[in-house]
Design a protein around this nucleic acid. Structure first.
Lengths: 137, 137
DNA sequence: ATACACTCCGTACCATGGTACGGAGTCAAG
DNA sequence: CTTGACTCCGTACCATGGTACGGAGTGTAT
């Protein structure tokens, strides 16, 4: 029933080093040890690592995941806490998407204006980077 | 006409340390020195730092900007090189946007499914993180 | 009994884009 | 001629999310 770190890593799809890293960071609690000093994990450890990975895929940082995990076992934590966190994350992601879309639009305009042949003298892309927008000091 | 590092930093809107950092990284060439050992910059140095900043705003990394800058003064570099780089960047940004949109959609679905009250027992967000997707080893 | 796989630990290292520190030297004004 | 602002340099440090290393101990199979 109990597993050693290598098997947990394999079944959770991460490196052994990553598990130790999560333990150091407090995302995974210190497991019991065998008489020989080996870490012994219950089956739930795999679920916990998967929890971390899925939350990461949804854009949460390890620091935020630490908070989510602490709520998971805190009887005072409410659905509202989690929902609020999710909504804050949605809004952060939204902002990031907007930024990237702006970048993309600018680049697309520049690329469209660039005929794509000849030397750089009049390349609109390079021109854009070179344009002076200096404020006098 | 020539400026010292502090003035360049001020006029370009970056820290002195950032200019030294760019110099170490090869984004800015080693400037001439005064007899006292101070760096002396021509006016174009400001333009070069602004070039870096604008390219960064459009999503280019310092490594990529180094390449763009080297092209800027290379007579063999063509518009096509730059355009190709811009289009590659557009496509990278596009991919990143898609990823973020996927994250956002998933989070929105979870947040919508979460009534936002009561304890965590049945919170669909936490449930999602907890869901087992184990492959048998 | 010995080879081999696994695990232990601390620490260093990777990329990214800087920021901070501290002791020394330079330069201009008062 | 001293004060204060600026600059010099190398190095360490920040966050982020891990990965790699190396020497030692453990556990198991043959």
């Amino acid at each position: 029933m109990l597993m050693r770190i290598g098997q947990v890593a394999k079944r959770a799809g991460v490196n052994v080093e990553t598990i130790r890293f999560y333990e150091r960071k407090g995302l995974i609690s210190q497991p019991l040890r065998t008489s020989g000093g080996y870490r012994e994990y219950p089956h739930e450890a795999i679920a916990r690592i998967r929890f971390i990975k899925r939350a990461q895929e949804l854009g949460f940082s390890l620091t935020e995941i630490t908070e989510l995990l602490s709520w998971q076992t805190d009887p005072r934590a409410t659905c509202a806490d989690v929902k609020q966190k999710a909504e804050a994350k949605i809004s952060t992601i939204h902002g990031r998407i907007k930024d990237l879309q702006k970048m993309k639009r600018s680049l697309e305009q520049l690329a469209a204006a660039c005929k794509g042949s000849g030397p750089l003298n009049d390349c609109p892309i390079i021109d854009c980077f070179e344009t002076q927008k200096e404020k006098e000091d």
